[in-house]
């Protein structure tokens, strides 16, 4: 358990860009059109930026909360102490654990802020 703690803290230090675990830059994802493409994860989105969801891990309730492929997602903030990220989808604010955030893939192109 103590070991886990240290690990968590280490992640906290490297938090300048808000990276979650295991998300390198050119990770292979899937666009909504089914074509494989180079995509980034939700965690790579800067605060205040918007992206389009490409793929969502099969965790409970994500789809029901609006986290579905093709939806625009706005990154609001990252909580302190390695807490969740606050995102907005379809006008609804959601707190998402960073582990999940790094598994949500976004489409490569930037989406415009105007809804």
């Amino acid at each position: 358990m103590r070991f886990m703690w240290k690990k968590r803290r280490k992640q906290g230090q490297g938090n300048g860009q808000g990276n979650g675990q295991g998300n390198g830059n050119g990770k292979l994802g899937y666009c909504c059109k089914g074509k494989p493409c180079v995509a980034k994860t939700l965690m790579q989105l800067a605060d205040g930026d918007m992206g389009v969801i490409a793929a969502v891990p099969p965790a409970p309730h994500l789809a029901a909360l609006g986290l579905r492929p093709g939806k625009k997602i706005l990154m609001h903030a990252r909580e302190k102490f390695q807490g969740p990220v606050i995102v907005e989808v379809e006008g609804r604010s959601i707190a998402l654990g960073r582990g999940l955030g790094s598994k949500i893939m976004l489409e490569a192109q930037e989406a415009s802020i105007n809804d």
Binding site: R8, E79, F81, G83, P84, I86, A95
Partner: peptide, 19 residues
């Protein structure tokens, strides 16, 4: 309440809890 939960989520994770 839920916003307070989100703010404290990181700290609560250290004791195995959620926001």
């Amino acid at each position: 309440m839920s916003r307070l939960g989100a703010l404290l989520d990181g700290l609560l994770n250290r004791v195995g809890l959620h926001g």
